[in-house]
């Protein structure tokens, strides 16, 4: 579904990604792991067209998307839950969800999203800025689902959330996986990620240094210690 091949990405003259490689297949949950500043968010920004990759190829559903503007990439079916949530604080919860809806054959409707996050159902008339951090995160995920993405990307979705809320988010991702939703996750919670994800990519200084299944990662303390600081 998504094939990232040899992309180089720069911030001005400073190179961040060096031939980054990544592949996600239909219905797979894949993680991008690595310490801070290694290029995880830049990889996602490159996929989404928010920071243009200078070289390489990014193919999604058989089409090259590396040079498309970000709105076309979203329309093609990639939904991003960005770091820091970035919900629209001046729109109500309902408006945050319906304004961004893209109806496709996959049937994420307003009713289904609200059923997935019952907490949001109670706060539909509240402005986005009036929600708690956890509720904002649920809204950010709900907003991405309303675009009916073929691939959902979550960048540090549980960062700064209370443990109970984190568990709700992981439970939500487990439900989505059961519905065959392809997901790319960046997070630091290795326990939860190895429970949910099919495969993992570990990146160091802008390139993939290890990839494998959850069982392989759990069985490899060297990778965990050397690249993830566990």
């Amino acid at each position: 579904m998504l094939e990232v091949r040899g992309i180089d990405t720069f911030y001005d003259r400073s190179q961040v990604l060096f031939g980054m490689e990544l592949e996600i297949r239909e219905g797979e949950v894949v993680t991008l792991l690595g310490r801070n500043g290694m290029g995880k968010t830049t990889t996602i920004r490159s996929i989404m067209g928010l920071t243009r990759a200078a070289a390489g190829s990014i193919r999604f559903a058989g089409s090259e998307i590396r040079e498309l503007p970000s709105y076309r990439i979203a329309q093609a079916g990639i939904g991003l839950v960005p770091e820091g949530r970035q919900i629209f604080p001046n729109l109500s919860v309902r408006e945050n969800l319906v304004a961004t809806a893209i109806p496709r054959d996959r049937a994420w409707t307003f009713e289904r999203v609200v059923a997935l996050f019952p907490r949001l159902a109670e706060r539909l008339s509240n402005m986005g800025g009036q929600l708690s951090g956890g509720e904002q995160q649920m809204l950010a995920i709900g907003r991405a689902l309303m675009t009916n993405p073929r691939l959902l990307i979550l960048d540090e979705a549980t960062e700064g959330l209370a443990p109970l809320i984190r568990e709700e988010i992981w439970a939500c991702l487990t439900q989505l996986k059961a519905q065959n939703q392809a997901i790319l996750v960046i997070d630091k919670n290795l326990d939860a990620l190895t429970r949910i994800a099919d495969r993992h990519y570990v990146i160091e200084k802008g390139r993939v240094v290890w990839s494998g299944s959850s069982a392989q990662l759990l069985a490899n303390p060297t990778v965990q210690h050397r690249y993830l600081g566990v």
Binding site: L80, P82, Q86
Partner: peptide, 21 residues
Amino acid sequence: GQVIRGAKSNDPRMHAIGFPT
């Protein structure tokens, strides 16, 4: 109007969600 108001608070995000703001 929702897109216009959303873009007021975060234009790049609205763009990245799929709207040519």
